[in-house]
Write a protein that binds this DNA or RNA. Structure first.
Lengths: 236, 236
DNA sequence: CGAATCTTTGAAAGACGTCAACATTGGTGG
DNA sequence: CCACCAATGTTGACGTCTTTCAAAGATTCG
């Protein structure tokens, strides 16, 4: 899917810019960012940054999916989010001057732009509109996190899996389109690491949901057939 | 503990200001905030703000503890954090222009200052040093949240309880002092709602930890006797 | 002092994880 | 293009952790 022609992409022309964190930039700023950034094609399974290392810049996804996870004390991955086109990764630890608390790894071949630290930080301090957008975005994200925390603490594995499927339907669906035929392409293990359960348990639930006609499986791929039913199973 | 004399407190004189979000303010800004704010004594169990309502300003705790929680779909409280002196509450939803995702309720009689929305927002836009401090603080908090999420998803109830006790030891201890005799004063239900478990399960673990000489109970109060042992029980 | 709230314990059921064995798939090199 | 290997997926059996329900005891606060 991603190939060399994408490497020429400039922020000014990027169809995702408006939706992204960089949507608040004016034309001039956008050009400056475009000049400073580079664009790379990553193979499936490559790591953008490792937990415990220091940020050197930010990543902006042009194509493909990236999993962001943290390793638990026993080495098990907990997937915090699945990032996709227009998502910007790796800036929070940069701003707070921490080591990365998480690892970012591509789930498929990806096209991803990289903006060096200093350029990003100048944007934060020099562009009031970008600063505001950033602040709002992060503050909103913290509210979302409270939600995730509560769900993780109070909902059963079955409920959490139903929620995860609905979330993934959005992530893997075309933005704006309400097509019901969304294929989720993740390993069972990754799915289990999103929900926070054992792979075997997840497979059993997959089987249950299939019997209840909530989903369909095509090989590894999962198709959400009945979002309303899933919402009910998740008690939403 | 809290009484009328605290109502006269001004930010310039506040012993907690340096450690708080407002530590980045210059003298002039500090005075302006002090003039704009009010200070109130709250009784135990009073609500500062309710989940689902719109922020009108921010709260800065001068004395006492406040629980911040979210209600799950079945009405159970999930305690996200226990806030104490120098903690600032209620600004994130204000910045992101969301409704409050959580409720803040006093756990004891508290003395708390209130700064109206517009004054706070002016600070954000007009004070670069405050803006930076805020941004850093929030970004750091998100990293902490990834950690909490992972622990909630992967650790057993027993391990999570051990972690919670260590966290509460800090919250209830005097800042800086390394005294080992810290009394945690929370109901069993609140403790359970921090850990994310049933009250009965928590009580049984309390019993276990007591037998293992990790803690001691004095009526409702809990005293951490062996932090290192707890850290081991939490697999940290 | 008494009602209300909070705490504790027991017993039983249920959810979930772990282990082991086996099936399937996808990718790689010959 | 095929064969093979490693990774991934699936199923069953079992044990354990955790929740739930019920009931009794202890505290606290008005």
């Amino acid at each position: 899917m991603p190939n060399k022609k994408y490497l020429d992409v400039r922020c000014e022309d990027c169809q995702f810019r408006r939706n992204s964190l960089f949507g608040a930039l004016c034309t001039e700023e956008s050009t400056r960012v475009s000049d400073a950034k580079s664009c790379t094609v990553y193979k499936k399974g490559q790591v953008l940054f490792h937990e415990g290392t220091r940020p050197l810049g930010v990543f902006c996804i042009y194509g493909g999916k990236v999993k962001v996870y943290k390793l638990g004390s026993d080495g098990k991955e907990q997937i915090i989010r699945i990032a996709r086109e227009s998502d910007v990764l790796g800036y929070k630890a940069m701003i707070s001057e921490d080591e990365y608390p998480v690892t970012a790894e591509t789930l498929e071949d990806c096209t991803i732009c990289f903006l060096p630290k200093s350029d990003f930080l100048h944007l934060v301090t020099d562009s009031p509109s970008f600063n505001k957008r950033l602040l709002q975005s992060i503050c909103h994200e913290l509210g979302v996190m409270s939600n995730k925390l509560t769900n993780l603490a109070q909902k059963s594995v079955r409920e959490r899996f139903a929620m995860a499927l609905l979330m993934l339907k959005d992530t893997y669906g075309i933005d704006g389109e309400e097509s019901e035929e969304v294929e989720i392409n993740l390993t069972r293990e990754d799915l289990a690491n999103i929900v926070g359960t054992a792979t075997e348990t997840l497979i059993r639930l997959l089987h249950d949901f299939k019997e209840e006609d909530l989903i369909e499986t095509r090989g590894r791929k999962i198709v959400v057939k009945n979002p309303r039913g899933l919402a009910k199973a998740a008690r939403l």
